[in-house]
Structure formats: C-alpha cells, structure tokens
Measured scan of single mutants.
Amino acid sequence: NARWTTEEQLLAVQAIRKYGRDFQAISDVIGNKSVVQVKNFFVNYRRRFNIDEVLQEWEAEHGK
C-alpha cells in the first residue's frame, strides 16, 4: 500500500532516529513498506517531520 497511515509515519520517524539512512532496516521495522517507499517517504515527508534534523541527531550520535 502506497499510502502511509499516521502510525506508519510515526514508526518511520522513530526508525530513522534509530537507523539513520538504512532504508532496508526502516522498511523491516515498518513491515509493509518497500525500500523504495521508504526512500520516497524521506523525500515527501522531509519537511513535515524535520527529517534533516533527525538525521543530524543520528549522525552526531553515531559519528557519521
């Protein structure tokens, strides 16, 4: 399903906090979204969920 429920959106943001840009890991956490759908989520929801800021926090924690 290409549509993202609110629950899936929140799950994705939590997974980004945990896995950074590991699209496969994020896809696995959500369970019903492909890697391509996760990559599209990054692009389409970047502003709404401040994904750049979430990634900066992840990179700071993981030394990337």
Rank of each mutant, 00 (worst) to 15 (best):
N1H: 04
N1K: 15
N1E: 13
A2R: 13
A2N: 15
A2K: 13
A2D: 15
A2W: 10
A2C: 14
A2Q: 14
A2T: 15
R3S: 10
R3N: 12
R3T: 14
W4D: 00
W4I: 00
W4E: 03
W4P: 01
T5M: 00
T6S: 13
T6F: 09
E7M: 12
E7D: 11
E7A: 15
E7N: 09
E8N: 02
E8V: 00
E8M: 09
E8P: 00
E8K: 11
Q9S: 11
Q9M: 14
L10M: 10
L10Y: 05
L10W: 07
L10H: 04
L10C: 11
L11Q: 10
L11D: 08
A12C: 15
V13E: 04
Q14S: 14
A15W: 02
A15H: 06
A15Y: 03
A15T: 06
A15E: 01
I16F: 04
I16M: 07
I16N: 11
R17F: 10
R17Y: 00
K18D: 04
K18S: 08
K18F: 02
K18V: 06
K18C: 06
K18G: 02
Y19S: 02
Y19P: 02
G20L: 03
G20T: 00
G20C: 01
G20I: 03
G20F: 00
R21G: 08
R21Y: 11
R21L: 12
R21V: 10
R21E: 14
D22K: 07
Q24R: 09
Q24P: 07
Q24E: 12
Q24K: 13
I26A: 02
I26P: 01
I26L: 02
S27T: 02
S27Y: 05
S27M: 02
D28T: 13
D28V: 06
D28E: 14
D28P: 01
V29M: 13
V29N: 05
V29F: 07
V29E: 13
I30C: 07
I30S: 15
I30A: 02
G31K: 11
N32K: 09
N32F: 07
K33L: 06
K33I: 04
K33M: 00
K33C: 02
K33S: 00
S34N: 09
S34M: 01
S34W: 08
S34Y: 07
S34K: 02
V36Q: 15
V36N: 15
Q37L: 02
Q37W: 02
Q37C: 06
K39I: 03
K39G: 04
K39F: 00
K39C: 02
K39L: 03
N40C: 11
N40W: 10
N40K: 11
F41N: 01
F41Y: 03
F41D: 03
F41K: 01
F41C: 01
F42V: 07
F42D: 02
F42N: 04
F42W: 04
V43T: 13
N44F: 09
N44A: 13
N44V: 12
N44E: 15
R46L: 05
R46S: 13
R47A: 14
R47C: 12
R47W: 12
R47G: 13
R47H: 15
F49S: 05
F49M: 10
F49H: 10
F49N: 00
I51W: 08
D52M: 03
D52G: 08
D52V: 04
D52L: 04
D52S: 06
E53Y: 09
E53V: 10
E53Q: 14
E53D: 11
E53A: 13
V54P: 06
L55F: 08
L55T: 04
Q56C: 07
Q56T: 13
Q56S: 13
Q56G: 10
W58N: 08
W58C: 08
W58A: 07
A60P: 08
A60H: 11
A60R: 10
A60K: 13
E61W: 03
E61P: 01
E61T: 13
E61Y: 01
E61C: 06
H62A: 12
H62E: 11
H62S: 11
K64M: 15
